[in-house]
């Protein structure tokens, strides 16, 4: 199913928090638009993420049963938002859905998806330590790849590389 059709199906099912589709478009030199290549994303409201994912999983015409990936992105150091990116896959209908939620840097908090997909557990732990996003209601919010005492959030664009770690110089 194409993204627009998925969007319409969700809308018909009464899901709130849909903010439209981010479709690729060709470059337009006249209007100095560089265009956007690649794949379409469904834009959603981060406050509604759990009911939305539940609908994606349970709606009989979508059946996104696998949560493939959950991550974030910091597109610009001076930007206001982080993006939370979720990839879903349906085994039955063989279609994918990419979800994008803009999260303001001033309030980096989103509800945890672990109650909907248990696969989200480790992805959220990684996302949290790398970007400093709090996942509300996460059952086990420890760090996963980094040491427990690591300072800062390495995948943020404004991250400053440490000069020493436990007396070991990294310069």
């Amino acid at each position: 199913m194409e993204l627009q059709a998925i969007h319409d199906t969700l809308k018909a099912a009464g899901v709130v928090g849909l903010l439209g589709c981010d479709e690729p478009r060709p470059a337009n030199k006249k209007e100095k638009d560089p265009g956007r290549a690649g794949m379409p994303f469904l834009l959603v409201d981060p406050a509604e993420i759990v009911p939305l994912l539940t609908a994606c999983r349970d709606e009989s015409r979508l059946q996104f049963d696998l949560l493939i990936d959950l991550t974030a992105s910091d597109p610009a150091a001076d930007g206001d938002d982080l993006w939370v990116l979720i990839q879903l896959l349906s085994l039955k209908y063989r279609h994918r859905l990419a979800i994008k939620a803009h999260l303001p840097k001033s309030a980096l908090s989103i509800a945890s998806a672990t109650a909907v997909y248990r696969a989200a557990n480790w992805h959220e732990r990684e996302c949290s330590e790398m970007f400093g996003i709090t996942f509300e209601g996460h059952p086990d919010p420890r760090k996963i790849l980094l040491p427990d005492d690591w300072k800062g959030f390495p995948l943020r664009k404004d991250y400053e590389f440490p000069t020493e770690y436990h007396g070991i110089s990294c310069e």
């Binding site: 560089p34 290549a37 794949m39 994303f41 493939i68 991550t71 992105s73 597109p75 990839q87 994918r96």
Partner: peptide, 25 residues
């Protein structure tokens, strides 16, 4: 690489290897 974003998953021996790449051109 032209500006844009893409997620591509392929079948690795261990399962789906996915890459999400984002370019600003």
């Amino acid at each position: 690489v032209p500006a844009g974003e893409a997620y591509v998953g392929i079948e690795n021996p261990r399962g789906e290897l996915g890459h999400y790449v984002h370019s600003d051109g």
